[in-house]
Design a protein around this nucleic acid. Sequence first.
DNA 1: TCCATATTTCTAGTTTTATGGAACTATTGG
DNA 2: CCAATAGTTCCATAAAACTAGAAATATGGA
Lengths: 125, 125
Amino acid sequence: MELDESIVALKALAQDTRLVLFRLLVQAGPEGLPVGELAARLRVPDSTLSAHLRVLRAAGLVRDQRRGRVIQCHADYARMDALLAYLTENCCAGSGACAPVPVCKTLPSPGAQAHATLPRARQRR
Amino acid sequence: MELDESIVALKALAQDTRLVLFRLLVQAGPEGLPVGELAARLRVPDSTLSAHLRVLRAAGLVRDQRRGRVIQCHADYARMDALLAYLTENCCAGSGACAPVPVCKTLPSPGAQAHATLPRARQRR
DNA sequence: TCCATATTTCTAGTTTTATGGAACTATTGG
DNA sequence: CCAATAGTTCCATAAAACTAGAAATATGGA
């Protein structure tokens, strides 16, 4: 991972709601959780949650897939590993003081890598 | 490290200038670098650099000591380790998908090893 | 087709962050 | 004490982020 991507990922995690959200997804395992379930657990309005999810998706930390009406989200472990590796290599190991990069063996995610994002919203008004 | 502290540390690193700045300090080793040297290398005005340093200090990632007129800054490796440990434990290992926590030590001590197990979060439903 | 459910996008208001000039503080040396 | 150097704080401005209601889109089922 490069500097720019790392910044985006760090920004994505550097916010209370999003860090808790991401943690929830990580703990939920490869199956992940539906958007609605996340909103309920975090007690945040749908639109707010959606905004946060967008940030995490843009950072590559969360992916999802539509299952009927429900969109199931899951953490991208490999991406998180890449971030940790970047930090360990560039902001820790550079000094020679740190242990080797932690290599995470990613569990194959169920299903896919596709974003279940809507095609494109029509202009309203 | 707790959630709040992690957020502060993540916010501190989630900015181009500050991440590069911190990386510089890490690479500079325990000696660190003077504030003026940092400003020169990053090509930012003194006041801007000072503001960034303040954020990194507040996050506990950078410390400094005055040597005459010069203030010498250095990275706090232990703090960075704590952040990486938090992320690994809470946002990675919770899934059982990741390797042990990387333990960085400022001084070489053979006894250290990673926390292998983690508090598993409540399963849903 | 029409309706209910799930989620996103739009929009606006509020807050936070980043930036840099100018003034201020601290330290050293003459 | 004075001047020079190293940093910080103060302040204003501009940009970005957070939040959430309302409207729009997507899907499945009766």
